[in-house]
Nucleic acid binder design. Sequence first.
DNA 1: TTTTTATTTTGGAACGTTCCAAAAAACAAG
DNA 2: CTTGTTTTTTGGAACGTTCCAAAATAAAAA
Lengths: 354, 354
Amino acid sequence: MWLQLGRLHLNRTRTSIVDIARAAGVSKSTVSLVLQGSPLVNDKTREKVSALINELGYVYNRGAANLRQAKSKIVGIVVNDLTNSFFAELAVGMDMVVQSAGYVQFLAHSGESVDRQRQVIASMRENGIAGLILSPARGTEANDIKPLADSGIPVVVVVRNLPGAKASTLVSDNYAGAKAAIRHLIGLGHRRIAFMGGFVDTAVFSDRVRGYRDALSEAGIPLNDNFIIHSAPSRAGGVAAVERMMVFSERPTAALCLNDAVAFGVCDGLRSNDIEPGKGFGIIGFDDVIEAKTAVPALTTVSVDPQGMGQRAAQLLLKQINAGQIDQETIVTSVRLVVRQSCGAPVKQPEELA
Amino acid sequence: MWLQLGRLHLNRTRTSIVDIARAAGVSKSTVSLVLQGSPLVNDKTREKVSALINELGYVYNRGAANLRQAKSKIVGIVVNDLTNSFFAELAVGMDMVVQSAGYVQFLAHSGESVDRQRQVIASMRENGIAGLILSPARGTEANDIKPLADSGIPVVVVVRNLPGAKASTLVSDNYAGAKAAIRHLIGLGHRRIAFMGGFVDTAVFSDRVRGYRDALSEAGIPLNDNFIIHSAPSRAGGVAAVERMMVFSERPTAALCLNDAVAFGVCDGLRSNDIEPGKGFGIIGFDDVIEAKTAVPALTTVSVDPQGMGQRAAQLLLKQINAGQIDQETIVTSVRLVVRQSCGAPVKQPEELA
DNA sequence: TTTTTATTTTGGAACGTTCCAAAAAACAAG
DNA sequence: CTTGTTTTTTGGAACGTTCCAAAATAAAAA
């Protein structure tokens, strides 16, 4: 049988540095020098070699280089929830600086699963990352990144912090942001203000709630623990929180939400109860995702600038990689309240109309 | 000067297979065998070696292995816009199957820039990807992936197709989806139906518009080219499209939108013009992103199941990687119309009220 | 015991780079 | 033409794996 129906299996091996060398009549060392743009090599030679490189379609094998140099151009990024715009934008910010620094990133989604997170970090490690940026899944412990940190690979933890971890940290000033938001609502005349969304086990939640509490007591407004309404930190969670609130006899007239996703959900939930967000009820979100300004009503929110935060995180990581030494640094980025339409002045509730 | 203030620079080299071998009193080959789970090695030996592996905190160097085997466990994924939930979910779907197949992914965002896309693909190639999934930036040409494909690395193109490219393709049935959506609107009594969002240069746009056109003429409804309202394929674009529409003397009573993002924008735009989406105006989106079902009104949309699509794409790629041969395959995934609240029956416009 | 067979282990080459010390070539000065 | 200097090029070892043919050991058969 001469006629093979199978597809031809190219055993053409990748052209390597020595193929170029042979073709150019120089040694592999010289080709290597050219590749690194070394000034040591004669212009004439450089030219000849460069030409061959293009002609033969050579592609640099960074893996082989890493083997020798023990320093890759790869960073790892693990994010707890890529489907949440906040984190997607965070990732895009990182992507920008990583890419323009000549690195590539492994970028994975842990889906809030510590197991998957552990797995993917291990996998990245085997593949030789030079550093890691982690936006930890709920329930992550300092131990989960210990092996990495111990082996001298810099780690930057973002958004949620990880007490006790040997890593740098970059978080937004959640406390101050929440405080500013509540002060603003109080300034508008609101007195019964809820906090919606989130679960107790994250630092983000507790910091924001602390800001909420402190701002209220600072204004002499008594705290009502019922007004802290837990829910999933998602749009659906916001809807659920509103349902929970509707049964209260004395309802809040405004709410600070854990994040913008929850805030949008709260808008949805209010609408299905025929309350117009921003008119009958004041809403403030947290994060300032892109949709916040085009939504109707435009969302008043605490702007965290996720892209900018991603960029800073990446810069911090690259700095540590290049320094070759790990300085544990903690950065708290400042936030600002962006006032738009969704935080209306309170309207009197039925029982209050004389 | 004996006192150095600098940080200690660990020159502890990564423990390797031969360190384990030495410690266990066997050869490196044996350790390698254990690592690959080979049945050739004696249970007693395997046990001893495995113990040492844990104890010494050995981490496998996949880079070195790749060098020898010329086959990595890395795939590349490049997506045109990660901040768009559709693509984020697509990526998450891929992540799931890639990860559970024991691979890791380079995942990058091209931001619709062909240059960045070219760069990042090149970078991934140098780092030794075994395959690539590409959701191409607008304006991508078949040539952009030619070198990859020529060197025998399988490429799967998703969402937007790339005519003439040596790659497999996975797209949704945009034509049929649009047709079904329009038929439904017609069934509800709408006659003046717009198509909103998108620019002419993408196949996605033209396929969906073709479905829109065909469904209309099939029902004997005359086409009105003004009713095809171009805009950026984003939430902001949707808002803009509505503004453009409001000046028409005879306005549409419903619209099919290029995607869900545009549809949400259209809702926003209508609200700022005091039209209640789903009541005064019927809206159908495209994609069925997660927010679609919790939004108010819940969005009627053509469900594309981005996660599922991502999964299929990844499966297809892995299949080709393992097959070691490239079968150019084209898959058109079917879509289904999910009817929710946003597509209301039409209301008579002022001038039509007798 | 010796031979045969089955099981387990092993050294060394190979993969594609970088690095280094040293060789070669080119140029300058005497 | 020598010698000294500077510029350019080079071979080979090293990085951490896998693969292979062959060696060593253990078990079974004679």
